[in-house]
Design a protein around this nucleic acid. Structure first.
Lengths: 351, 351
DNA sequence: ATCACTCATGGGAGCGCTCCCACAGTACCT
DNA sequence: AGGTACTGTGGGAGCGCTCCCATGAGTGAT
């Protein structure tokens, strides 16, 4: 690929020292050139760069890591079994955003699954050994000890989807509140008046925010919130079915359903069909996530899209800043950042 | 998680030296204990282990890598864009096998995509820097320069699906020849006599082997191979459709089709339907890969399953051996290994 | 010409390990 | 008793970098 020149003349790979000798300069100067320091004259820089090219010099990462006490690597930690990782487009979108943003840098991305207890112990060791400069945490459950471990080890970290309003780690999230509002406002604008909500698992902060958005949108439109129209689900299809049955029982006259996820909307749709309700004629349906399910549903499902790829990019940005500062902001008396990215309603035939 | 004891007493993480002092032994002895050398007395080992636990000592990977000239990491290189990686179950199965086998060891797995030119250049740098002890190469095209780069850099590597009969890298493959044979023998045993074959891309070695298996199975059953019944496809659905049309044109009396992949079988099925042939009554259909498509096809497709997860495990085994030997076998006058794992015919309603 | 400062540069020290040689101690043979 | 062979152990050397201090050359003000 590159021209290698005198590679391996003296056995192994060329070292900084050899490059220095070849360029007729000192070790420090070569190091400065390699690391892009401005304190090098143009002539010297050119000479060093020539020597680097001739020898096919590539820095030894281990030596650099040892001397500089950094690894130039960050981990994307997925506290889920691998199967979910592959099953849900969320992760591949996230990975794409992270990867694209990271390709601008010299940083290496490690993908680490921590679904099983065993994998978690491994991860703990890994972090204790400081084998990465920072950590990206996606899909974290409310009671997960990982964020606290990270904080304790003072490892820079960014979490996607804060665990609560008082999240201690730097976080990136989409606007769950605003997304839910836009869904409800959309239904109101379509003339629906009895709008039900199937919530996500309420121990997930984002799901709670969606409920808040649902409530406030109704209130701001001058409607009272009918608690009989709110039923908790658990993000699964079965949960969506169950909740829909309950809702139909309690309020047979409902004319719209806002589900906290597309998967739950799919479950709700089945129950509505079985009950003889037409979508959207009798009951309008709106989901959340704008996943593949939404596009392929019959009828296609109106849904709220989260900018997942962009969230990945934002996470990297925040993390790199934190790493550059060499430590978490809180240990320097600074505020943690909490980025919130806008969502977008994608209207389709179901509403 | 673990008990940390005196972590950070003197600022940073404890070093080997500190553990040695605490245990009242020399640096070398601690190193031996850490690395599981047998040349340590039981009493000394116990003392060192106690000191390690008390101090919460975790070895510094960078220092170890520098001193020992190894990284304890291997890369799984996917020469495809990420999208394909997530789309095809092949990769997740492979990753599962690799991961499970690797979790027995201290090795770290890196997932590296090399779909774009840019990513490839990065990878070349990465390999030149010897940042991994070995490489797993999956899904390599015939003209890919990567295997040669690996050989030239003398980096231990194992490839899944050899590029040819004379593959220079250690390889793991499934028994394409035997798999094809079993498919054809199955059709023969069902009384089919005019069995067509839609091949895969013939610049893919595995596809060629399947053609060989098809031919030999017919010959060994005492039939002559009718070349008009063999038509090349390209692994795509469209290619399957095209090949099927050609075959139906040439041999309207065919009574079975063995497709070189499930996706091509799906294409063939469409054309057969349009031509008014019933499956399996008029024409029996067999695919290859036993992918999700096969199970969900109407009728469910008989297909040849490859033990992908097991292949992943086998790749790791071979790679670890090669790494332990510190260099590729060929540079030591030894033969490359080529493991071939058995396939299995999964009979369903289509045949 | 002198001083004060800046800038490019060389190279020592040190990061935390592994490798290996030297050495003492013990055991078993002549 | 002397030799030989091991076994467990300590610690020097060195892996290839970065960091930082010292140095000398260059610049401009006095």
């Amino acid at each position: 690929m590159a021209s290698h020149g005198a590679r391996g003349r003296s056995g192994g790979r060329p070292t900084l020292e050899e490059v220095a000798a070849r360029a007729g300069v000192g070790r420090g100067t070569v190091s400065r050139v390699i690391n892009g320091s401005p304190r090098v004259s143009d002539a010297t820089r050119a000479a060093v760069e020539a020597a680097v090219a001739e020898l096919g010099y590539v820095p030894n990462t281990a030596a650099r890591a040892l001397a500089a006490n950094r690894t130039d690597a960050i981990a994307l930690v997925v506290p889920e079994p691998e199967t979910r990782f592959f099953a849900e487009p969320y992760f591949s979108d996230m990975l794409r955003g992270v990867g694209s943003e990271l390709s601008e840098t010299e940083m290496q991305l490690l993908l680490i699954f921590a679904g099983s207890d065993r994998e978690r112990r491994r991860l703990a060791q890994y972090l204790a050994a400081h084998r990465v400069d920072g950590v990206l945490l996606v899909s974290v459950h409310a009671d997960d000890p990982l964020p606290d471990l990270l904080a304790q080890l003072e490892i820079p970290a960014v979490i996607s989807g804060p665990r609560s309003a008082g999240e201690t780690l730097t976080s990136v999230d989409s606007d769950n509140y605003g997304g839910a509002r836009s869904a409800v406002e959309h239904l109101l604008s379509r003339g629906r008046t009895r709008i039900a909500h199937i919530t996500g698992r309420l121990d997930v902060y984002g799901a709670k925010r969606r409920v808040d958005g649902y409530r406030d949108a109704l209130r701001d439109a001058g409607r009272e919130v009918d608690e009989l129209l709110v039923e908790p689900g658990d993000f699964t299809e079965e949960g969506g079915r169950r909740a829909m049955s309950v809702l139909l029982d309690r309020r047979p006259d409902l004319d719209a359903v806002f589900a906290g996820s597309d998967v739950m909307a799919a479950g709700a749709r089945q129950v509505l069909r079985e009950a003889g309700r037409r979508i959207p004629d009798d009951v309008a349906l709106v989901g959340y996530d704008d996943s593949a399910i939404a596009r392929h549903m019959d009828p296609p499902l109106t849904s709220v899209r989260q900018p997942i790829e962009e969230m990945g990019r934002a996470m990297i940005d925040l993390l790199l800043t934190e790493i550059a500062d060499r430590r978490p902001p809180t240990s320097r008396g600074l505020e943690r950042q909490h980025a919130v990215l806008p969502t977008q309603l994608v209207a389709r035939a179901s509403s």
